[in-house]
């Protein structure tokens, strides 16, 4: 119940901050751009748009959210409230993943593309969003302002994005799937282009495991470096 309340209050906060409105505008803009592309380009561009924007929005916003809550004293209140750190972080990850999933569904549904595996699309978007939001929490440790946070995200983004080029395909390129972002992009591409069921299952299990590891690690970092600042 505490978790549901925390998620609901995060969603209300995000609506108040204009997340949904801004993503409505962004979705319209993407649709305008995507509508101009020929079908063969669209099938490649659409998954890349979904992966590069809605799926990673958590990384962009979580830094500001935590810094704001820190400056408002929310984190101090949380320490003495019944809400556990795990629930606080999970609520953030789930509520941001919801924005990601809605934006991804809207962009895909309104684009002229057929044969989308909606279950895989939603699953891969949520798992990717989780990874990036949890990474954002870890990156946030030691940051005092948004500019610092933005600079600190650059190496992490490079670490996530550069291996994704392995999907272009070369010898042993599948080995790069060990990088969570590559696994996430493979699963997302599978939602649009089709994927063998056991590969989808393997990628899903791997991403679930990575999300769990990121979650445990972000809880630890959040408590030690952000709340108590040891």
């Amino acid at each position: 119940m505490r978790l549901i309340n925390a998620i609901w209050s995060d969603i209300k906060f995000q609506i108040k901050q204009g997340f949904y409105l801004v993503y409505l505008i962004i979705t319209i803009m993407y649709l305008i751009i995507l509508s101009m592309l020929p079908e063969n380009v669209l099938t490649i561009a659409l998954p890349l748009v979904v992966f590069s924007d809605p799926s990673v929005l958590g990384l962009f916003f979580i830094g500001g959210i935590i810094l704001l809550e820190k400056s408002q004293g929310v984190l101090m209140v949380m320490v003495v409230s019944p809400l556990r750190t795990q629930e606080y972080i999970l609520a953030k990850a789930i509520s941001l993943a919801l924005v990601s999933a809605i934006a991804a569904i809207a962009i895909t549904a309104l684009s002229p593309i057929n044969n989308v595996n909606w279950f895989l699309l939603i699953l891969s978007t949520i798992l990717t969003a989780g990874l990036f939001t949890l990474s954002g929490i870890m990156i946030n440790a030691g940051c005092n302002n948004v500019n610092q946070y933005m600079v600190k995200t650059i190496p992490y983004m490079l670490l996530f994005v550069l291996p994704s080029f392995s999907l272009l395909g070369f010898e042993y390129s599948y080995l790069f799937t060990v990088v969570p972002s590559v696994a996430a992009l493979r699963l997302l591409l599978g939602a649009y282009h089709g994927i063998i069921w056991y590969e989808a299952l393997g990628l899903t299990l791997y991403l679930l495991l990575m999300n769990y590891i990121f979650f445990r690690y972000s809880v630890k970092i959040f408590e030690n470096k952000i709340v108590y600042q040891d």
Binding site: F19, V22, F60, F61, G64, L68, S71, N145
Partner: peptide, 8 residues
């Protein structure tokens, strides 16, 4: 605030 700044 910062979050609205990011949204903007």
């Amino acid at each position: 605030d910062k979050v609205k700044g990011l949204t903007f």
